[in-house]
Amino acid sequence: MSDDNHTLPYPDSAVEHPTLVIPGKVDAAVPAKRRRWPWVLLVLAVLLALLVVAAEFIARSVLPGIVRGMVIEQLDLPADQQLDVEAGGILLPQLIAGRLDELHLSSDRVTLEGITGAADVTATGIPLRGGDLASANGTVRIDQAELTTLLARSELPIESLALEAPNAIASGSINLFGTSIDVSLTLTPGAKDGDVTMTPVSATLGGVVLDAQQLNDRFGSLAAPFTQTQQLCIADQLPAGLTLTGLKIEGTEAVIDVDVNGAIATDPALLDPGVCP
């Protein structure tokens, strides 16, 4: 026999040898399942987020209508009253907690106790299961005709009113020494202790412009109504739950700032007209 073809010896069973892995024979089932878990969780998270967004959208669609209906009923406003309602923050947590953080109500034209104007009110801490508001305040914008009506009981001779920011120009007539004299007063409006204040700046008598000092010099105590700040209660022309906190002229409108008693949501008496002393 030729020695050219050598016979390889059998492997020594006492020595460890590496195992050869044949490609395509590895069981990949378990690792594949494990790799699918992150995708399943991601899909579930996306579905949950979509549900939350949908619920928030529904809440924002439904809530304004509910609030609008309640306000219109409480204030006895017309059924077709234009009233925009906007809630602040994310609604779902607030609805679950039973308390809204903030509500913004606005109307381009609304009539309360005979006063018509544009209203803008912001309320905070609104309990959904009943209770007082944490706070509320707002502004009412009225034109010169409405302001004239509001000041009708003033001692000042106001037959007509023109608004020229920051003042109001009141025109009328007075009886002085038995003679009727046309008078025009330049007044700066404001608020104090819930009342309207009107501070005279100057007066025009018979075509002559006089400041406060000149009026005092000429007419003495008779000029007091035209030189001293006049204070006028208008509480009986507002719901009792509203307190006047500011009044100023902006452009051709009078801007009235009001503070709202939080108990107005639970006490019907605060919706009735207030009382002047």
Results as ranks from 00 to 15, higher is better:
D132S: 08
A136R: 07
P200T: 04
A168F: 10
S13W: 09
V275K: 14
P277V: 04
I96T: 04
L247W: 01
V43C: 14
V85E: 10
L176E: 07
I234R: 06
T149I: 07
I72V: 11
E155V: 09
G207S: 00
E159C: 09
Q213F: 08
E250P: 03
I264S: 03
L133R: 06
A162N: 13
R99S: 03
A224G: 10
T111N: 09
S61V: 07
P189Q: 00
G65S: 09
G24C: 07
T124K: 13
W39S: 07
S154F: 07
A162F: 08
L91K: 07
V62T: 04
G251T: 04
P268W: 03
F57Q: 11
R218D: 13
P157D: 04
S180I: 10
V71T: 14
A162Q: 14
P189W: 01
A191F: 11
P23F: 01
R60S: 04
S160R: 14
E73Y: 08
D272K: 05
G130S: 10
H6I: 14
M70E: 09
V53Q: 04
L271Q: 08
I181T: 13
D236V: 05
I181R: 11
M198T: 07
L161I: 08
Q231T: 15
I22G: 02
I115Q: 09
V209E: 15
T245A: 05
L83E: 05
V209D: 15
T179S: 15
V260H: 09
L8F: 06
D267M: 04
E159Y: 12
A87Y: 03
G178A: 03
D143A: 01
L41Q: 10
K248S: 12
R153F: 11
G220T: 05
S135F: 10
S160P: 09
I169V: 09
V110T: 10
G130I: 06
V62F: 05
L42E: 09
N167P: 01
A49V: 10
K33L: 14
S2L: 15
A119H: 11
G220I: 08
F219G: 03
L205T: 07
D143S: 02
R99W: 02
L41M: 12
A223F: 12
T149A: 15
A170W: 00
T7W: 12
A59I: 02
G251I: 03
P127S: 08
L128V: 05
L20V: 07
D101V: 02
R60V: 02
G262S: 05
S61Y: 12
I256V: 03
I264M: 14
I234Q: 05
V209R: 14
T204G: 02
L95Y: 02
V53A: 14
L91R: 05
